[in-house]
Deep mutational scan, measured.
Amino acid sequence: KTEWPELVGKSVEEAKKVILQDKPEAQIIVLPVGTIVTMEYRIDRVRLFVDKLDNIAQVPRVG
């Protein structure tokens, strides 16, 4: 699995749990929505963009 659209609106902790069940090797990085990030693709990275309430604001994707 490479993306988790069902996690939008969920808490960071809930999202981490689901992603690590699907992809145990994932390196999860939590960032505020709108953060500028590098464009290199990494198969072991999932970025979680969160709103001010620490809920997932964008679809988490591998990369």
Rank of each mutant, 00 (worst) to 15 (best):
I29M: 14
I43F: 11
A26L: 12
L53D: 14
K23A: 12
I36N: 15
K17E: 09
A26W: 04
Q58E: 14
T38D: 15
R42Q: 15
Q58G: 07
K17C: 08
I19K: 02
F49Q: 03
V62T: 12
K52D: 09
L20Y: 11
K52T: 11
R45M: 15
V59S: 05
T2N: 12
T38I: 05
K52M: 11
E3P: 00
G34C: 05
D44A: 07
V37W: 08
F49Y: 13
M39A: 13
V50C: 07
G9Q: 01
K10D: 04
D51P: 00
L31M: 12
Q58R: 13
L7P: 00
R47E: 15
I28A: 03
V50T: 10
F49E: 06
R42D: 14
F49L: 08
E6Q: 06
G34F: 03
S11L: 02
V59L: 06
R61I: 09
E3C: 10
V33H: 08
M39W: 09
I28H: 00
S11T: 10
R42P: 15
L20G: 09
D51I: 00
A57S: 10
E25S: 12
D54M: 10
D54R: 10
L7C: 05
M39Y: 10
W4K: 03
W4H: 00
I43K: 13
Q21Y: 06
L20R: 11
L53W: 14
D44W: 04
D54F: 09
D54V: 05
D44H: 10
E40G: 08
I19A: 01
L48V: 08
D22M: 05
Q21H: 14
Q21C: 11
E14R: 08
D22P: 03
V62S: 11
V46M: 06
M39C: 15
K16Y: 05
E25F: 08
K23V: 13
V50L: 06
P60K: 00
I56N: 00
K17W: 07
K17M: 10
V12G: 02
E3H: 07
N55H: 11
N55G: 04
E40N: 09
D51Q: 01
I56A: 00
G9W: 00
V33Y: 11
R47K: 10
T38E: 14
R61M: 13
A57T: 11
K1T: 08
L20A: 11
G9P: 01
V46A: 05
E13G: 10
V12H: 04
R42A: 15
V37Y: 13
V8H: 03
K52W: 06
I36C: 13
I43L: 13
Q27I: 09
A15K: 02
I29S: 12
R42E: 15
K10I: 07
Q21R: 13
A26M: 12
G63V: 09
V12C: 09
L31W: 05
R61K: 08
I29R: 08
R42M: 11
A26F: 06
R47G: 12
E14N: 06
K23C: 15
D22W: 05
T2Q: 12
T2D: 05
E25K: 09
L48I: 06
E40V: 05
G34R: 06
E40H: 09
K23T: 07
V59R: 03
E6R: 03
E13V: 12
G63A: 09
K16I: 05
E6H: 07
S11G: 11
D44R: 05
G63P: 10
L20F: 08
S11K: 13
D51E: 05
A26K: 04
Q58I: 10
A15H: 00
R42W: 10
P60Y: 02
V50D: 01
D51C: 00
P5V: 03
V30K: 06
D44S: 09
Q21D: 09
K17L: 08
S11F: 08
K1P: 02
N55Q: 11
T2C: 07
M39D: 15
K23M: 15
D22Y: 06
V50H: 06
A57M: 10
W4E: 00
K10C: 14
M39H: 15
G34D: 11
E40Q: 06
N55Y: 09
T38W: 05
I28Y: 05
T2W: 11
P60F: 00
D54E: 11
I43T: 15
A15L: 02
I43N: 14
R42K: 13
T35V: 07
G63N: 11
Q27K: 13
D51W: 01
W4N: 01
P5G: 00
E14L: 11
V30A: 05
R42F: 08
D51L: 01
I19N: 03
G34H: 08
V8F: 06
T38S: 14
K52A: 14
I29E: 15
I19T: 02
V62I: 13
R45T: 15
E6K: 05
P5M: 02
I28F: 15
L53A: 14
K17G: 07
P24I: 00
K23L: 15
V8N: 01
P24W: 04
V50G: 01
T35L: 05
L7Y: 00
E14G: 04
G63W: 11
L7H: 01
Y41M: 12
P32K: 11
V8K: 03
P24F: 00
V12M: 07
W4C: 03
E13F: 08
I29H: 09
K23S: 08
S11Q: 08
M39T: 14
R47V: 15
K1F: 11
Q58T: 11
R47F: 13
E25H: 12
V18D: 04
G9F: 02
V18N: 05
E6Y: 03
V37P: 14
G9C: 04
Q27H: 09
T35I: 05
Q58L: 13
V8R: 03
L20C: 07
K1W: 05
A26N: 01
P24C: 04
Q21G: 12
E6N: 05
I56P: 02
Q21E: 10
A26I: 14
Y41C: 13
K17V: 08
V46Q: 00
S11Y: 11
D54C: 08
L7I: 04
I28C: 11
V37M: 10
D51K: 00
L7G: 01
Q58W: 06
E6D: 12
P60V: 05
D44C: 07
E3R: 06
R47C: 14
D44G: 09
P5T: 03
L7V: 09
D22T: 07
I29D: 13
V18I: 13
P32W: 00
Q58A: 12
I19H: 00
T38N: 12
Y41H: 12
V50I: 08
V12S: 08
T35R: 10
I19L: 05
K52E: 13
V8P: 03
P24H: 03
G34Q: 07
V30N: 04
W4S: 02
R42H: 13
T35D: 10
R47A: 14
